[in-house]
């Protein structure tokens, strides 16, 4: 394996105090993506520090409700880091209810908005965030719209489409 994959493995193992499995994929152009599921939520902060030591850049944070989230009572957050062109994804598995993650802002300044967005769109508490205000959502909208699994017509205005089509089809009948 390359220096990069060796270094990442060593750094993560050092941070977690145990061997952490990273699955590396190399695409047709030779670009590496590494996928790693952290053993617990507490492992996130030391792992993020280890990535920062390797001069990693926080690229993106993806919170999501995985397949059968309700059944399993689990949710996941994927933290994607850039390592000079390679992408390392660290995934933390959290409980569906009362999920909490530590803020990575002390390590990565640009995590600020990513975490503000995560907090308003999902039901996740980010512990230690310096500025937990809403970012994009209007104050009149309910909290955490992404938690509601589709469809939820009382919340979205899915009725708009139907109302418009009723007018189109009514106009058509007048025409005929």
């Amino acid at each position: 394996m390359t220096d990069l994959t060796t270094n990442v493995a060593a750094a993560l193992a050092m941070a977690a105090g145990e061997e952490i499995n990273v699955l590396w994929r190399r695409d047709r152009k030779g670009v590496l993506t590494g996928w790693c599921r952290l053993p617990c939520g507490e492992a996130l902060l030391p792992a993020a520090r280890a990535v920062a030591e390797l001069e990693g850049r926080l690229a993106m944070v993806t919170p999501y409700l995985p397949e059968r989230a309700k059944e399993k009572g689990e949710r996941e957050i994927a933290y994607h880091f850039d390592l000079d062109g390679a992408t390392l994804t660290l995934t933390v598995v959290l409980p569906l209810e009362w999920a909490r993650v530590p803020s990575l802002t002390p390590i990565f300044r640009n995590c600020d908005w990513q975490e503000r967005e995560l907090m308003e769109l999902y039901d996740v508490q980010v512990v230690g965030h310096p500025d937990p205000r809403r970012l994009f959502l209007d104050h009149t909208l309910p909290h955490a719209p992404f938690e509601r699994l589709v469809p939820y017509s009382t919340f979205t205005n899915a009725a708009t489409g139907k109302a418009l089509w009723d007018k189109v089809l009514a106009g058509e009948r007048e025409d005929a």
Binding site: L137, D138, L141, P145, F155, T156, N157, A158, T160, G161, L164
Partner: peptide, 15 residues
Amino acid sequence: VSGGVFRDSYAVDGP
């Protein structure tokens, strides 16, 4: 007029 591709979003209040 219709919302175009954004129709039926929770964040849109058109038409």
